[in-house]
């Protein structure tokens, strides 16, 4: 079968389509972000406003809130396409599924991961994050949020055909998120006491490369199962 258009063209077309749809439904971008900010603001109210305490727990709070926000926003990654049948068209198209899946996940990361990275320093100020740690926080978020999108997409692809996929989704993907959380927070902690944190960053980077290579295949296979 002739492919018609090149891989790059297919990738950018789908990416642009997803971005355009998201811009028309602005709530989809802002709601996870708002959720992220709200969760973070709840913590000082819950554990008390002492700056020392907040400085200590800030990396963990920001990262856990990021995990939850990314999970919430993931739910609609394939849902609309699944409901209106365009997902099946994608599976039937002569383009390799891996490229299309990558485009969709990349669009999701631009729409939820990037705003999250941009808001994070602001929240870090509110939580009195140690001033040494800002670079580490941004670096871990920049490397870590794409991993969250890629791993989460596997779980979403598995549950997209189910009516009650929401709770199941958290059970499936939160365990897979744990390694990212551990290394990210440990990098920020190391940075706060002026220790080198390039080791942890390298591990998150390795996770990113690994999931970038493996996850699209798992997502593709899961989509084929779900649309069956």
């Amino acid at each position: 079968m002739k492919r018609g258009i090149s891989y790059t063209k297919a990738f950018t077309t789908l990416l642009q389509r997803d971005l355009r749809i998201a811009i028309r439904h602005r709530g989809d971008i802002f709601n996870p972000l708002l959720f992220f900010i709200l969760v973070v603001t709840l913590f000082p109210l819950g554990i008390g406003p002492e700056p020392q305490v907040l400085t200590r727990v800030a990396p963990g709070i920001i990262w856990v809130a990021a995990l939850l926000a990314s999970m919430l926003s993931l739910e609609r990654l394939f849902k609309a396409d699944y409901n209106d049948g365009s997902l099946e068209q994608m599976l039937l198209s002569p383009q390799p599924l891996v490229i299309l899946v990558l485009a969709k996940v990349f669009a999701h990361w631009i729409l939820t991961g990037v705003p999250l990275i941009l808001v994070a320093p602001l929240l870090a100020v509110l939580l009195h994050l140690d001033s040494n740690s800002y670079v580490a926080l941004m670096a871990t978020l920049a490397l870590g949020t794409p991993v969250l999108s890629l791993l989460g997409a596997i779980g979403v692809a598995l549950t997209v055909g189910l009516r009650k996929g929401g709770v199941l989704l958290s059970l499936l993907i939160l365990p897979l998120y744990i390694p990212v959380l551990i290394f990210a927070t440990s990098a920020i902690d190391s940075a706060s006491i002026n220790l080198p944190y390039s080791g942890q960053l390298a591990i998150i980077g390795a996770m990113l490369i690994g999931s970038l290579i493996m996850a699209p295949f798992a997502i593709g296979a899961s989509l084929r199962v779900s649309t069956n």
Partner: peptide, 13 residues
């Protein structure tokens, strides 16, 4: 289908 889906998760894990 259930076995396929669970299988993919098992392999990823």
């Amino acid at each position: 289908l259930a076995a396929r889906a669970a299988g993919i998760l098992a392999i990823v894990g």
